[in-house]
């Protein structure tokens, strides 16, 4: 017997369509922007709506990214994910109210410091809540989707009621920190400062997540675990521990998203997480369950489309994202960037 083949294996060169295939989802973002550019009569309006759409998309991505990984890794459908958004918003906004002297000061540094404190507190609170949620509610129903839906919905209702007990049933209105109020003008377009900040934070978070998933061993374990958890365990890695870590990180990110979404809407309610969940589900599904890149692209598409359509034909805004989901699923039933699951 020979130890090695005497031929030189080569990989056949794919055709243009095949090579372009992986990039088509990314190309949808400029395609939707171009759609907006064609139909929106004023360039300045288009620019304003585009920044607004990107900001909304980034925030949805932050809130949805944990959920897609949780589903991809352990097949857990967490209908309670929205409650981390609500809790994050309430904890973060409470901190901002306490730090009123910093948020009211006309200093960008002080404002950002206050937001950072609020975000860290929100992430810590939702991270701990996520850990408890996983241990108490999710762990007993691994592998049982129907039970997962029921108990996570139950968990969501219970925690929402706890929010009402702690903070009261009324909506809480808030003002953004002083230096982040108003807009800057660029090329005749007014762009809200806070939305620009949201775009920046979202982009940085995406790059950090991408780096972690692509360049670190824990990231490799997560990606491999999404595809074939059993084999990851056979290589000696405790996937359950990794999953708990991802659940906590995903909950903390949802908490961060909750603070940002609260400041974006300038009002928070106990049900705000539940209300945004429909957009999060759309993003997770069209992105491809378990795909962070797909989730990112999906969130930007949803954000942009919602803003463009709300401007062009407000009555269609609500159904535009459902239409987007239907169109993408007809094109790619497993989502834009499907994660190959081991059989």
């Amino acid at each position: 017997m020979t130890a090695a083949p005497d031929h030189t294996p080569t990989m056949s060169r794919a055709g243009l369509a095949e090579r372009l295939g992986p990039y088509i989802p990314v190309l949808l973002i400029p395609a939707i922007m171009a759609f907006g550019l064609i139909f929106i009569p004023s360039m300045s309006s288009w620019l304003t709506l585009t920044v607004s759409g990107l900001a909304m998309g980034m925030m949805i991505f932050i809130m949805a990214s944990g959920m897609t990984l949780v589903f991809g890794l352990m097949d857990v459908i967490n209908f309670g994910h929205g409650v981390f958004i609500s809790v994050g918003a309430f904890v973060g906004i409470s901190i901002l109210l306490v730090l009123g002297h910093m948020t009211e000061a006309p200093s960008l540094a002080l404002n950002l410091a206050a937001i950072l404190a609020a975000v860290l507190a929100a992430m810590a609170a939702t991270g701990v809540l996520g850990w408890a949620f996983e241990r108490v509610i999710v762990k007993p129903v691994y592998g049982a989707h129907l039970k997962q839906i029921l108990v996570t919905m139950g968990g969501l209702i219970v925690v929402e009621q706890l929010i009402i007990v702690l903070w009261g049933p009324e909506e809480i209105y808030i003002l953004r920190p002083e230096a982040l109020r108003g807009a800057i003008t660029f090329a005749g377009a007014a762009m809200e400062k806070y939305r620009l900040l949201a775009v920046g934070i979202g982009a940085v978070l995406f790059l950090v997540m991408r780096y972690t998933l692509r360049r670190t061993k824990i990231g490799l374990i997560v990606r491999a675990g999404v595809e074939n958890g059993e084999m990851v365990e056979a290589l000696g890695y405790r996937l359950r521990l990794v999953f708990v870590g991802v659940f906590i990180a995903g909950s903390a990110l949802a908490g961060l998203g909750g603070v940002m979404w609260g400041l974006y809407q300038e009002v928070i309610t106990a049900h705000m997480g539940q209300q945004i969940m429909i957009l999060i589900f759309i993003v997770v599904i069209i992105g491809g369950l378990g795909s962070v890149e797909g989730c990112f692209i999906g969130a930007l598409l949803v954000g942009l489309l919602q803003n463009y359509i709300a401007f062009l034909e407000p009555k269609l805004a609500l159904i535009s994202n459902i239409g987007l989901m239907v169109a993408i699923l007809m094109w790619r039933p497993q989502g834009m960037i499907p994660v190959v699951k081991a059989k």
């Binding site: 490799l220 990606r223 491999a224 595809e227 074939n228 084999m231 056979a234």
Partner: peptide, 9 residues
């Protein structure tokens, strides 16, 4: 038996 390759990696 199914090789358990991580295709995405």
């Amino acid at each position: 038996e199914n090789m358990g390759i991580f295709s995405d990696l």
